[in-house]
């Protein structure tokens, strides 16, 4: 474990807790894409298949349970909670799941480290996580109203993967045989997708104006 990865995990943890807190306290999911949340639930499900088979550390297991629990409870809130669901904007959140899931699945079947079910699922989860934010970014472009919590959520989500890139660089230089080019490429693509959001987020923060994404 290195500081970059710990900071990345904590940033990721805070991002999901910020979102859960928002939904739970104000009982609203305005501006949140259910599609993206469902994709994240799928990312964690396919990535943590080894949750009950390989024990790595208490930290690893606890964090996996938190990420699984939070992503599924966010989906539950938006789908099932009698108050929250009313604020879900299904007419605007229209990104088709299979436009993202199918290409990632095909890619995982073609490019992976080892052709086993768990390995292909793990690779699929990496590709999926890289693009899972797209429905959320599309929704933000459409609704154009980005409340603070949603802006912070997307920012923290992007920041966590950027910190992981520093972790991979660090591990590449400090650990022999640490070669994960699939992880690195997926992680870089993921962070680049946030780049324009980061730009507008910093602009709004610097000029102290409300965050507006160009149409």
């Amino acid at each position: 474990m290195n500081i970059f990865r710990l900071a990345g995990d904590m940033t990721h943890l805070v991002s999901v807790l910020v979102l859960l807190l928002k939904i739970h306290t104000i009982k609203s999911c305005a501006g949140i894409s259910l599609k993206t949340q469902e994709l994240y639930a799928l990312v964690f499900t396919t990535r943590y298949l080894d949750l009950f088979t390989d024990y790595i550390s208490l930290y690893n297991t606890v964090m996996k349970l938190i990420f699984l629990g939070s992503s599924f409870s966010i989906v539950w809130y938006i789908r099932r909670h009698k108050i929250v669901r009313r604020s879900y904007d299904k007419d605007q959140d229209t990104f088709r799941h299979y436009f993202i899931v199918l290409p990632c699945l095909v890619l995982a079947l073609l490019i992976h480290h080892k052709f086993t079910f768990k390995e292909v699922m793990w690779t699929f989860s990496l590709y999926l996580e890289a693009v899972a934010i797209l429905p959320q970014l599309v929704l933000l472009q459409r609704t154009r109203n980005i409340d603070n919590l949603t802006g912070q959520y997307v920012f923290l989500l992007g920041a966590y993967r950027a910190l992981y890139i520093l972790n991979w660089i660090y591990r590449h230089y400090t650990e022999p045989h640490y070669v994960h080019w699939i992880t690195w490429i997926a992680g870089i693509v993921q962070t680049l997708l946030y780049a324009d959001f980061f730009y507008y987020y910093f602009q709004s923060w610097k000029n102290n104006v409300k965050l507006q994404l160009p149409a």
Partner: peptide, 10 residues
């Protein structure tokens, strides 16, 4: 191919 990536990361 390279070693199977250890899955110690989240």
């Amino acid at each position: 191919g390279d070693a199977i990536p250890d899955k110690d990361e989240l």
